[in-house]
Design a protein around this nucleic acid. Structure first.
Length: 668
DNA sequence: GCCAATCATCGATAG
DNA sequence: GATGATTGGC
């Protein structure tokens, strides 16, 4: 295997002896490359079997990409390396040992909406909320409970610091938490948090299971370690116990998942938790030109906590990042369209361009502008088509077939029918939890009795089809289509989404695998399209979803308080700190060209106002030396060209205006 | 007692 | 656009 292409630091990490290593790797220092070579080296030099290696990454996409690159180094066997997220690893382990925890191996996975519904049901059962009693929303309750699990802090502590107005309800929230856990067990379902928690429980309470799991992990590698939480750290520890081989890679300056319980201390105090660990550093940046890194260093300088790193590059100075002032969001979109076309003309491949933003909806106006200009793009992060109501409906049916005790799936389906509301649905699912079957007998005389009986029949007919996913999909979609047509005006468009879903399903041969994959790594509708002829598309991505990736040219949208940084972070020091790291991640994605867009005007329904500054930029002391400010305005309209706005654009602008008005009100 | 329609409120990032 | 509270109707 050829190691000559690596620098000394990378080579040290790749060829590190057995044991525990912490690799601290700044942005663009070849972290992925190092991991890829490490996997290849273990296979080739240490003669590890591919199934003995487990590579935990942040998304399945990242794992697949790394294994693909490793296979280019050492051949096809690299694909057999076990790779995925902590969650996907947990699903597999838990299926095997489900019975030890009081589940069966066909358990299904709840998404956030399901969990919220269940919290809502429990809340109404307990008679909390309603008449003037200010009780937190179910989403808030769930956030508190999730944070409790992911940080290990207790409910009182979390409510006290994050939601002091609800301090009187701490006891009630704890009670909801207890019932929530019990109900999920009764329903044979787990949510995302449970996957990790139950795995830790399994390892803690069933040593023989832990040993068998850990015995199978000869080499454990964990990427993006700065974004792991304390449960994930426990899992890593448990899995390395048999063979003692663990390599974690991360960069504390890129920790951007604090809201999800990620704890930078995992990496900062790694050597206390793993006293035998060797520390290795990768410092030279191979990605970006120096002017881009200067800005990145400037961003880190404003951080409260000192990060002792200054990125340096060998790739030359390059061009200064541009700080582009545009009038408003429409101009921002038009500016990017113009720039993309310009660069494409110059021969920059579209795959080498990306637009990054803080929140999914920031790109709405841009998406329309791109569509009008006929520029192909793919959007990552934000709401996926899988979350659309009609897609979730079909999913609910699939889940019922996979796990007849999946009460939340029933809960959703039952309320399709006229005359059935939350109370009736709750009654039915209480029975299902208890008996495990959907008994339509008590409802036969109701006006929805016929619909219930028919549904029961459809589910029964579906049972033999679980091994034939395409047939199962067809069966369920056929049943659901009339329901959809009655429910939604735009059922034609929605019908196409169901076809997309069927295409995705074709890649799987078992129902559980399909359901788990889709829950853990929601595909975008573009994933179903067969390779799109050319893979020439512009990437639109949230910054969070852009982690670990790089492009020649990067635009960052909506620099301005209230957008980026988010309005919800402005009065919270820790949150602002995370916004800064997020900005750092965005800046360091660019290899050669970086353009930051700053709309000056906000249009709201009461007129326009100047946008506030952007704390992320304004706090950088010598900003003017680091960026080149420019102003962009659209070329004057040619005579005869209509100035009428596309109706969709007008609608998107209105939605945005409403949203902005909300922030203005909140601050004023 | 429960469902369905109506109105006000709020709105991020993701496995 | 979703959620939660409110209200009118069966």
């Amino acid at each position: 295997m050829d190691l000559d292409t690596l620098n000394a630091g990378q080579r040290a990490a790749v060829t590190a002896p057995d044991g525990v290593q912490l690799v601290v790797a700044g942005a663009g220092t070849g972290k992925t490359r190092t991991l890829v070579h490490r996997v290849a080296w273990l296979l080739e030099e240490r003669k590890a079997g591919p199934r003995d290696i487990v590579l935990l990454t942040f998304t399945r996409r990242a794992a697949n990409e790394m294994l693909g690159r490793a296979s280019q180094l050492v051949g096809h066997e690299a694909y057999a390396v076990r790779g995925g997220t902590f969650h996907s690893y947990a699903v597999q382990a838990l299926r095997r040992y489900a019975d030890k925890l009081g589940f069966t191996r066909d358990f299904t996975i709840l998404d956030r909406g399901d969990s919220e519904s269940l919290v809502g049901i429990i809340r109404s059962e307990l008679g909390l909320g309603g008449q003037g009693r200010r009780f937190p929303q179910r989403r808030t309750v769930l956030k508190v409970l999730s944070k409790q699990i992911n940080t290990g802090r207790d409910v009182a502590d979390i409510v006290d610091s994050d939601y002091p107005q609800y301090f009187d309800h701490v006891g009630d929230i704890e009670e909801i938490g207890r019932r929530f856990a019990a109900r999920k067990r009764a329903q044979n379902v787990m949510d995302f948090d449970d996957l990790l928690v139950h795995l830790v429980t399994l390892m803690g309470e069933h040593p023989e299971a832990r040993e068998r799991l850990a015995d199978a992990v000869k080499y454990l590698l964990v990427d993006e370690y700065q974004d792991t939480n304390h449960i994930q750290a426990l899992i890593a520890r448990g899995l390395h116990l048999s063979h003692g081989n663990l390599m974690v890679v991360g960069d504390e300056a890129q920790s951007i998942y604090g809201f999800r319980g990620a704890d930078v201390r995992n990496i900062l105090h790694f050597q206390e938790q793993f006293p035998t660990a060797t520390l290795l550093r990768l410092e030279q940046n191979y990605r970006s030109t120096q002017r881009i890194l200067d800005l990145a260093n400037g961003v880190l300088d404003t951080a409260r906590e000192g990060y002792d790193k200054t990125l340096f590059s060998d790739l030359g100075h390059g061009d200064s990042p541009l700080l582009v002032e545009v009038a408003d969001e429409t101009d921002q979109a038009d500016c990017i369209v113009e720039r993309v076309l310009e660069l494409r003309e110059k021969g920059v491949p579209m795959k080498e361009m990306a637009v990054l933003f803080r929140s999914g909806f920031h790109a709405n106006v841009l998406e329309l502008a791109l569509a009008r200009a006929d520029i192909p793009f793919r959007k990552f992060g934000g709401i996926q088509f899988i979350e659309a109501a009609h897609v979730k409906d079909v999913f609910a049916l699939l889940r019922i077939v996979a796990n007849p005790k999946d009460a939340l799936a029933w809960y959703r389906v039952l309320q399709w029918f006229d005359g059935v509301g939350s109370k009736t649905a709750e009654k039915v699912i209480a029975d299902i939890e208890e008996t495990g079957v959907f008994d339509v007998e008590p409802y036969r005389k109701r006006k929805y009795g016929g619909a219930f009986a028919y549904l029961a029949g459809v589910v029964e007919d579906a049972q033999p089809l679980t091994a034939d996913l395409p047939a199962l999909m067809e069966h369920l979609v056929e049943y659901y289509t009339p329901i959809m047509e009655q429910q939604y005006e735009d059922h034609r468009k929605r019908g196409r989404d169901l076809e997309t879903l069927a295409v995705l399903a074709q890649r799987y041969d078992d129902l559980e695998g399909f359901l788990a994959d889709v829950s853990l790594d929601p595909p975008s509708s573009a994933d179903a399209r067969p390779t799109d002829n050319d893979d020439e598309f512009l990437t639109l991505s949230t910054i969070h979803s852009a982690k670990g990736l790089e492009w020649d040219t990067v635009w960052v949208l909506q620099l301005g308080d209230g957008h980026f940084p988010s309005g919800q972070s402005l009065d919270d020091d820790d949150a602002m700190e995370e916004e800064r790291r997020l900005f750092y991640v965005a800046v360091t994605r660019a290899k050669r060209r970086l353009e930051l867009l700053q709309p000056r005007m906000r249009h709201s329904r009461w007129g326009s106002s100047g946008a506030p500054g952007c704390a992320l930029l304004d706090e950088i002391p010598d900003l003017r030396d680091l960026v080149e400010p420019v102003r962009w305005a659209p070329a004057p309209l040619k005579p005869g060209r209509s100035v009428e706005k596309h109706p969709d654009v007008a609608a998107a602008e209105q939605r945005l205006a409403d949203f902005l008005a909300f922030f203005d009100k909140k601050k004023g």
